[in-house]
Computed example of a mutant assay.
Amino acid sequence: MSMELTGKLAEAFNNQVTLELTAATVYRQLAIEMDVLSLPGIAGWFRAQAGEEIEHAEKFMNHMTDRSAHPKIGEQHAPVVNVKSVADAFAASLAHEQKVSEAIRELYRLAQTEGDIDSIPLLHWFIDEQVEEEATVGEILDRVKLIGNDGSGLLRLDAELSSRKES
Rank of each mutant, 00 (worst) to 15 (best):
T136A: 08
G151Q: 15
P71N: 12
S163G: 15
L19T: 01
V80W: 02
A135D: 08
T18W: 04
I147D: 02
S93Q: 04
L94H: 06
D150I: 08
S68H: 15
H56C: 00
R47K: 13
S101N: 15
G115D: 04
K84R: 15
A103M: 02
H124G: 03
S93M: 06
V131T: 02
K145N: 12
E11T: 06
L94K: 04
G115Y: 01
N15Y: 05
L37Y: 07
A89D: 02
A31M: 05
S152A: 15
E75N: 13
E133H: 02
A78H: 04
D158F: 05
Q49L: 05
L107W: 03
I104E: 04
H124S: 13
L122H: 01
S38Y: 05
K145W: 09
E133Y: 01
K8M: 08
S163D: 15
V80G: 03
A43P: 04
D142R: 13
E55A: 15
E58N: 14
E58Q: 14
M34L: 02
D118I: 08
S162A: 14
I147C: 00
G7H: 04
I73D: 11
E139M: 10
E133Q: 09
A43E: 07
A103K: 12
T6S: 13
A135I: 03
A78T: 14
Q16C: 00
S68R: 03
A24L: 05
L9H: 04
V131I: 00
N149H: 03
S85W: 08
T65Y: 14
T136V: 12
K59C: 09
A135R: 12
G41N: 10
V86P: 01
E4L: 03
D88R: 11
A87C: 12
S101D: 11
Q29I: 13
E139P: 00
H96K: 10
A48N: 06
V81D: 09
Q112V: 07
M64W: 08
D116W: 09
W125A: 09
Q29M: 07
I140E: 00
M64P: 01
K145T: 08
A89F: 03
A57I: 06
I42R: 01
W45P: 00
S101K: 10
I73P: 11
D116C: 13
A111M: 01
A78G: 11
K145I: 11
I117T: 10
V100C: 09
A31E: 06
A24I: 08
D142K: 13
A159C: 10
A78V: 11
F60D: 00
Q98A: 10
L39V: 09
V36L: 12
I73M: 15
L37T: 00
V80H: 12
M64F: 05
L37C: 02
L94A: 06
V144F: 01
G115W: 03
A10M: 05
